[in-house]
Amino acid sequence: MVRPVLCPCGLPQPYDACCGRYHAGVVGAGAVGAPTAEALMRSRYSAFVKGDAGYLVRTWHPRTRPGSLELDPGMRWTGLEIVATRDGTAFHTKGVVEFRASYRGGSLHEVSRFERVDGAWVYVDGEFPGE
């Protein structure tokens, strides 16, 4: 029996049942969107791991979204740790997720802000504590 590929986001679920279901559709077009800011953060991390720049752009707030996004094909992401969350549930319109994303040779520590646009969670921007 073939074991399913675990999701890169760190949750103990197969990729297809976790972040893969968000990556498969376009947010706002009848596809399943991330239900919380943390779920969106995890799915965006997984999109970096998978090299899915299209998903990253689609889930970026229109106010802060870049025109295009070039990912480094040599970057090897190795793990995600959620440090803290504030708000960002079905009962909120804004949320904050603090995380550490490890990559070969280092890590990225960010406090990310998220908002709902037309009911869907999107990434707004982030700050790097201590920099």
Rank of each mutant, 00 (worst) to 15 (best):
A90K: 11
G126Q: 07
G106C: 10
A101M: 09
T59G: 13
W77Y: 10
G79A: 02
R21A: 11
G30S: 13
A24H: 14
R116C: 05
G79V: 07
V122G: 04
A120F: 08
V124T: 14
P4E: 09
G105Q: 10
R113Y: 00
M1D: 00
M1Y: 00
A31Y: 07
L11M: 13
W60K: 06
V5N: 10
D87H: 13
E98W: 08
H92K: 00
P73V: 10
C18R: 04
D125E: 15
H61K: 09
T85M: 02
E127K: 15
L71V: 06
V49C: 13
V5H: 06
Y123S: 07
A47L: 11
G95T: 01
V26M: 11
T36L: 05
G28F: 06
G95V: 09
V5K: 14
A84P: 03
Q13C: 03
V2Q: 13
P14W: 01
P4H: 02
R104P: 00
F128M: 15
A47Q: 09
R104F: 06
A37F: 05
A84W: 01
A53Q: 10
V111A: 07
V57M: 14
W77I: 10
E70P: 01
A17E: 14
P129Y: 08
V32R: 10
D16E: 15
C18H: 05
D87Q: 14
Y123Q: 08
K94I: 06
V32H: 05
A37K: 04
F128S: 15
E110F: 09
Y103T: 07
W121Y: 05
M1S: 11
T36H: 06
R3F: 02
D72S: 12
Y22H: 14
L71D: 03
E38I: 09
G51D: 13
S68W: 03
T64M: 06
R100K: 15
V83A: 03
C9E: 05
G30T: 08
R44V: 07
G51T: 12
G20E: 07
V96G: 00
E70R: 15
V117H: 04
V97T: 11
Y123H: 11
T78G: 04
L6F: 03
L56D: 01
R58L: 13
A17D: 15
D16M: 12
H61Q: 05
H92Y: 02
R63V: 11
G106P: 11
V5D: 04
T36Y: 02
A17P: 01
A84I: 04
D125W: 07
S102R: 15
T36Q: 02
D52I: 12
V57S: 04
